[in-house]
Design a protein around this nucleic acid. Structure first.
Length: 907
RNA sequence: GCCCCGGUAGCCCAACCGGCAGAGGCAAUCGACUCAAACUCGAUCCAGUGUGGGUUCGAAUCCCACCCGGGGCACCA
């Protein structure tokens, strides 16, 4: 088998060694790592390189210690893809970096008195060494750490760009507040009972001013463009993003409020049920509720204040429990239904969310379960305006009695002009009428909220804003980066405000506008900002004039293949898509989706559950590597199952992988033919297996069925072993060399060390990674004969060896001629004969219209039933087959055009 | 509650457009090699595809219902 020319001239410095008689994984690691360090086979984007480009990216790691089994799986799979495209002759960019800002560094600093910077970079050094040993095919000339000022400078640049466009803004928001520790808590730090994980105190909501990115402005595009990812992204991720964005459509309706100049706007998906509204509810924690209560009677106001306090002390988790009792207080105020002028009492309740829609709803208890629950709890009226029927057409029971709202489709009643319409028509008509009356309009809403990026933490990117007496001032671009001050002397313990606020020298600066005293914004950015654009930086990681080289990103982007865990299915991928679209809109990028193709690898489990300290089921990667070697662990990751499935380490066998690698390696050890031996002179049967295997492996790798590709490779190894050990082929046969070279190249995707050593044993120079993918000779794929199954009533009764292009009629005749078939039919009449040439005939006897025929004479060459095989090959048919025939299996001479026999069933 | 995936041998997994249920591996058993063991090599064992219907000449594959497992969203009006 010839190799493609993808391998470029690499220094010829290493003599092939034939000293090893035994496969020794660890010795091979020692032997080849320094060679690769020198050759750098994975450098990409060299000037003058004319190979077509591929950008393969693994999600970069957080440096929280050494690599673990999860990393090992992700990088093994990403490597298969990157190495495959390299073998196929592409200029593959496969970079790596570190998501190096974030809380664990800071927690280590607080707990153990370490410097976050030192802790982070020590871990990076360790991970980097592990990746090298793990033989990751990274381009080590493209590396970034988000905690480097050279990187986070561009985070700040990005922030300023968003700020200029009005996409970064500051607003007050409610956060989880621990009143004992005086600190903000993440949602994850709030226990299910609403107490603080840290102090045990009851967590309350507190208002803080925070920075946001206006991702909601892109909600429609983020949702609609998911359609373009259909088929190249896992459908699971697409549906998770759709859920997360959560677009709904309906109408905004304006309700006049008695004693208030401005109307209140509510959002509803069911404007058709407007006539069924019997009250209005505003979110208890909204400004609107406070305002309405302020003008109410003192008793009402007092009740409201008490209720609101109670709501604020309720944890988010409690509040979201769906089976909670409905609570609320009346505000003593009234709204006017714009369609019928009815007075509706206004209530404050916590089942309405302040930050969704307008924070106020119209309640239609008959047709909304939540409103019905509320109405029943407080004795509010229920009015049916939709006649909803069950499947049999019976009217559903009255919600007021049954307690079950009828939310389905039906005919509108008691609804004035809308009467008689169904849901869709009713919605459309209602919107039309509202619009005409100036009381409402069609509207959309999203579950997606703006992205809160402020963190009151030290180890992150400082927000490039300075606060002056006259407001917030962006730091001019030419003054970036705003450097993070040293952590010495700062108390990093969380206290609700950023530790940077205490760095007096740092925080107090003159205003960039007029030099008056000002203070830096003490917050740092969410680390998701860092990771939302890092993939762009890899094209020019050293560039200190711009975040990324625009020409280069146009050449390389978008990323051809992104690989990472499904844990980032929503936030990271959504943020990255958002920032990409923003940069596209600003003219920096020619594409507006960053990741053309996405692969989510599964997790590595141990005995059915995720590895964790508390479960005590942690498998240490370093132990596995010491025990089985890098190659065996990598191969196990690929072979365990489909890449997106979880791997239970207890179910797989790295020692089995190591055994296979030994088998493969020994092939190369045993080959005795010289490099360059002409494979066409070799054993034809083995050649057919080789080419068919490579053909299938190629298809499986491209379809990311790595486990099946490895299985095919194992078959090829087994077949080659048999050939070597057989008397009539033997180790000197050029076909054996061809097969073994193919094994080495294919194996280089999965087990680089063994593959490199095989390549060397076969007399080639490193690196096998750039040897070039084996070229399949199509003519060797053509099957001379195929096995045709003959069924009688769906049961297999006989097998025929037939030409692949046999006609239906000929095959029918052959099948009916079979003694076994005739015995099975037993003289019964034939009803149907289904022929699917060349693989299958199904004969259905029965009281059909077609008469049974006696065995027709066999006019169509000399077919052989499988039972009587041995004297020769089956009838060749057609010229293609004869051209593909090879020595050793010389066909019978009865070639030539065959008469087309009439089928026994006639026409 | 709504939505999405998945159930094939003791285990991990294959099976193209509906066409012989088995490619590969693990484990187990037996045999060869060995003084013995390990390694290696060879062989054997094992399911009728979660359950019940339907469509079809023919269903692991398509349709319906259900069971089990996993995941996402969830007081979002």
């Amino acid at each position: 088998m010839t190799q493609t020319e993808a391998g470029t001239g690499v220094p010829a410095a290493h003599e092939p060694e034939r000293d090893g008689e035994r496969y020794d994984a660890h010795a091979l690691q020692e032997k080849w790592l320094p060679v690769w360090d020198e050759l750098k086979p994975f450098r990409s984007g060299e000037p003058g390189d004319t190979r077509p480009k591929k950008y393969v990216l693994d999600m970069f790691p957080y440096p929280s210690g050494d690599l673990h089994m999860g990393h090992a799986e992700a990088y093994a799979l990403g490597d298969v893809i990157a190495r495959y495209w390299l073998q196929r002759g592409f200029d593959v960019m496969h970079p790596i970096g570190w998501d190096a800002f974030g809380l664990p560094a800071e927690n280590a600093a607080i707990k153990r008195g370490l410097d976050p910077r030192a802790w982070t970079y020590d871990n990076i050094a360790q991970q980097r060494a592990s990746m090298r040993r793990y033989a990751c095919s990274f381009d080590w000339d493209r590396v970034l750490h988000t905690s480097d000022p050279e990187y986070y400078k561009w985070n700040q640049w990005l922030f300023l760009k968003l700020y200029e466009r009005g996409l970064a803004y500051r607003k007050d928001s409610l956060v989880n507040w621990d009143p004992v520790d005086q600190t903000v808590l993440a949602n994850e730090q709030v226990m299910p009972d609403g107490t603080s994980e840290r102090s045990g105190a009851k967590v309350v909501k507190k208002k803080l001013t925070q920075w946001y990115f206006r991702i909601t402005e892109y909600a429609d595009r983020l949702l609609d463009d998911l359609d373009t990812l259909e088929g190249t992204w896992p459908s699971k991720v697409i549906s998770m993003q759709r859920n997360w964005i959560g677009r709904s459509s309906g109408a905004e309706v304006e309700f006049a409020i008695e004693g208030r100049e401005q109307p209140v706007t509510v959002y509803t998906t069911r404007p058709d049920t407007l006539h069924g509204a019997t009250f209005m509810v505003v979110a208890a924690d909204s400004d609107l509720a406070e305002e309405l209560a302020a003008d109410a009677e003192p008793a009402v106001r007092a009740a409201f204040e008490e209720y609101r306090t109670q709501v604020q002390e309720t944890s988010e988790i409690d509040r979201l429990a769906t089976d909670r009792e409905k609570t609320g207080v009346p505000l003593g105020r009234f709204a006017v239904n714009p369609v019928n002028g009815e007075r509706l009492p206004i209530w404050a309740a916590d089942y309405v969310l302040a930050d969704y829609g307008t924070g106020a709803i119209m309640a239609v208890p008959a047709h909304d379960q939540r409103d019905l629950d509320f109405a029943r709890a407080f004795g509010l009226p229920v009015r049916v305006v939709v006649d909803v029927r069950d499947a049999e057409g019976n009217a559903l029971p009255d919600p007021a009695e049954s307690g079950t709202a009828t939310a389905g489709d039906g005919v509108l009643v008691n609804s004035g002009e809308l009467d008689g319409l169904d849901k869709a028509a009713g919605v459309a008509k209602a919107i039309e009428l509202l619009q005409a009356a100036g009381k409402g309009r069609a509207a959309k809403n999203y579950r997606l909220r703006d992205w809160l990026i402020s963190r009151q933490r030290y180890w992150g990117t400082p927000i490039p804003i300075v606060h002056t007496d006259s407001g917030e001032v962006p730091v001019p671009e030419d003054q970036l980066p705003v450097l993070l001050p040293p952590s010495e002397g700062l108390n990093l313990t969380p206290k609700g405000t950023s530790p940077l606020g205490a760095a007096e020298d740092w925080v107090n600066v003159p205003s960039p506008v007029d030099g008056t005293p000002a203070r830096r914004d003490p917050d740092t950015m969410d680390t998701f900002v860092d990771s939302s654009w890092y993939f762009l930086r890899f094209v020019s990681p050293e560039d200190d004039t711009q975040p990324f080289d625009r020409d280069l990103i146009a050449q390389w982007g978008p990323i051809d293949q992104y690989v990472g865990g499904v844990t980032h299915a929503i936030l990271h991928l959504l943020y990255a898509r958002f920032i990409t679209k923003v940069l596209h809109d600003m003219g920096y990028l020619p594409f507006d989706e960053p990741f053309a193709r996405l692969l989510n690898q599964g997790m590595v489990l141990m005995e059915g559950s995720a590895m964790s300290k508390s479960k005590g089921n942690i498998v240490r990667l370093s132990d596995q590597l010491d025990e089985h070697g890098v190659d065996a662990v990598r191969l196990t990751m690929s072979f365990a199952g489909p890449p997106e499935d979880d791997i239970d380490w207890a179910d797989v066998s790295p020692s089995g992988s190591a055994k296979f690698l030994g088998r493969a390696w020994r092939l190369a050890r045993d080959v005795t033919s010289e490099r360059g031996a002409d494979p066409t002179a070799g054993d034809a049967a083995l050649r057919a297996v080789t080419h068919r295997s490579v053909h299938e492996i190629t298809q499986h790798v491209e379809a990311y069925r790595f486990n099946v590709a490895v299985a095919r490779l194992m078959e090829l190894v087994n077949a080659t072993r048999k050939a070597i050990d057989s008397a009539d082929v033997g180790p000197a046969d050029p076909a054996v060399r061809e097969a073994t070279e193919a094994v080495a190249v294919v194996l280089s995707l999965f087990a680089p060390y063994a593959a490199e050593d095989m390549w060397s044993l076969l007399g080639h120079e490193p690196a096998v990674a750039r040897a070039g993918w084996p070229v399949v000779d199509e003519s060797l794929l053509v099957q001379e004969t195929v096995t045709c199954v003959v069924q009688v009533k769906g049961k297999v009764r006989d097998r025929l060896e037939v030409a692949p292009d046999i006609t239906e009629d000929a095959l029918r005749e052959l099948a009916l001629a079979s003694e076994k078939v005739q015995a099975a039919i037993g003289g019964a009449e034939l009803r149907t004969v289904v022929v699917r040439a060349p693989k299958l005939v199904n004969i259905v006897p029965g009281p059909g219209v077609r008469p049974a025929r006696p065995s027709p004479p066999s006019r169509a060459g000399p077919p052989r039933r499988s039972g009587s095989r041995g004297t020769g090959s089956a009838a060749p048919a057609g010229s293609r087959a004869s051209s593909a025939r090879c020595a050793g299996r010389r066909a019978s001479p009865s070639t030539g055009p065959r008469p087309e026999p009439r089928g026994p069933a006639g026409r």
